[in-house]
């Protein structure tokens, strides 16, 4: 039955070569922990992606309850945390997942760096990866404000004050992020929410796609 459905679709849109391109590639011996245990360092990149997927899924569920407005943001998080079935787990996955993403990303970056895997011809992929590192830090910064508790409020205020000190464009950066030159308030929360769930994830997905296309095109760097 499934095979028939697959054949029906395949006859019309020739889907086999598309997924073959993604799935059908070789795994060389030197990256396979089944043959050399020390090759577990090659798992870091995949695990980073895995945590990112956890972040995306748990974040999608969080937005079912979260209200990005200063009257209700904290209350909605508190309600999710204390009243909603499994709400504490979903929020916990997103909260701790943020830290785990940073840790895995750091490990993955260090693996690539100390193996010199960024050398010609893989310079572009390294730069795409570092850009993603910055985007993930941006996601951490904007996400920190969203629960709208004292911790997030005052940390964001400090962060914005630091941005303000950038010469020439500092005040403009602050206004762009906070929605006002002085006030950290309702506008700031909606802007951070928009940046956190639309702008940065959009950029992240584009770079992630580039990262994977490049690694598929170039293959994994050879053994040292």
């Amino acid at each position: 039955m499934l095979q028939k459905i697959y054949d029906w679709i395949d006859e019309r849109i020739d889907i086999t070569p598309i997924w073959r391109d993604i799935a059908d590639h070789e795994v060389p011996e030197h990256v396979n922990p089944a043959h050399h245990f020390s090759a577990f360092v090659y798992c870091f990149g995949g695990l980073t992606f895995f945590v990112l997927v956890i972040q995306i899924l748990s974040g999608m569920f969080l937005t079912m309850y979260y209200v990005p407005d200063i009257e209700n943001a904290w209350n909605s998080v508190y309600y999710l945390q204390t009243e909603v079935a499994h709400g504490q787990i979903v929020r916990g996955m997103h909260h701790w997942g943020a830290s785990v993403t940073i840790v895995m990303l750091l490990l993955h970056t260090m693996r690539v760096f100390f193996q010199g895997a960024y050398k010609k011809p893989r310079e572009l992929n390294w730069m795409v990866g570092v850009l993603m590192f910055f985007i993930v830090l941006g996601l951490g910064f904007t996400g920190y404000l969203l629960p709208w508790d004292n911790k997030s409020y005052f940390a964001t205020q400090v962060g914005l004050e630091i941005a303000e000190q950038v010469p020439f464009i500092g005040p403009e950066i602050k206004t762009l992020l906070a929605g006002d030159a002085e006030i950290v308030g309702a506008q700031t929360l909606t802007r951070f929410f928009a940046i956190h769930v639309f702008f940065l994830p959009g950029a992240l997905f584009a770079l992630l796609a580039a990262h994977f296309v490049l690694i598929r095109r170039q293959g994994i760097a050879g053994p040292l």
């Binding site: 200063i70 209350n75 945390q81 787990i89 916990g92 508790d149 004292n150 409020y153």
Partner: peptide, 12 residues
């Protein structure tokens, strides 16, 4: 995640 509920302080 299960061992450590994520922290939340008082409303800003």
């Amino acid at each position: 995640v299960l061992a450590h509920p994520s922290p939340l302080e008082n409303v800003a």
